[in-house]
Amino acid sequence: MNLDIYLPVAANSVNALLLVGLGALIGLLSGLFGVGGGFLLTPLLMMIGIPPTVAAASGANEIVAACATGTVSHARGGTVDFKMGILMLIGGLVGGTLGVPIVHYLSATGDADFVIAITYVVMLGSVGSYMFYDSVRDLRGGVVETLSRPAHHRPSIYARLIGSLPWKVDFPKSKVRLSALVPFLLGVLVGVLSAIMGVGGGFLMVPVMVYLLRMPMHVVVGTSLFQILFTCANVTVMQAWINHTVDFILALIMLVGSGVGTEIGVRINRRLRAEQLKILLSLIVLAVMAKMTFDLLVPPHIMLSYPGGH
């Protein structure tokens, strides 16, 4: 039985079951950790013969579906902080818009590939290492659910800084009171990095929410998915409009798997402790970082590549 399917924009043929499996894997990550999975999906699609530009754009389209499923599931469970998510989303859109000229400048100087690769390794390495260290420490100390520091500790410089900012708002879902500027500015920061790295920013957004906004992990996952849903929808439309690189058939087949994967991920998420979730995510992030570092340091098998890849 021929299960190969032709992808019109990618102009290649791929086994449909393989795509369904990839969709399920990425959906599982989304539901479990609140990451879009773009940092993993794009390289995996490239490995099965999808051109890099089509892989990135179509991956964003697939992530829209996974995030929609995840957002609905988390919203039903009351674990989406819409107020926080909207503020971060506005910041992310501003940051993404600021990041595009930076990428354009780097491309003009010929350094874009290099900067993107190094940014990936540094960000994945630092975020993954810190999450891993912190999760292990919490597991040993028996700290449950949040990362709130004991009250008798002297507030850090960061805590004092955000405490001094105006326009304080209550975020009941996240059980924090912050200046509205904080999620907005952090959204801008993640947006800039997302534009440079070409991903939805979930693996950056999750640690930002956990460590800098001090949100409970289970609310972080749902809120992150809500925010990535809009970021990736924007990326999909822009890529389809300007670069014509979205392969709808590719995304559609992966959707079959991703819906199921996301739902399973959400259910597992509700059964795991916050520290367990963080340690799993940190291990995946570190594994991707190790693979990227290996690719950067080991001589490639073929010394030529088609334009569009890193």
């Binding site: 829209v64 579906a65 609905v72 999909t236 822009m238 819906g259 199921v260």
Partner: peptide, 16 residues
Amino acid sequence: GCLAVAVAVLAGLSTG
């Protein structure tokens, strides 16, 4: 692009 997003959102919501 808009159709691709609309179908993805509908598929995602349906699954949910």
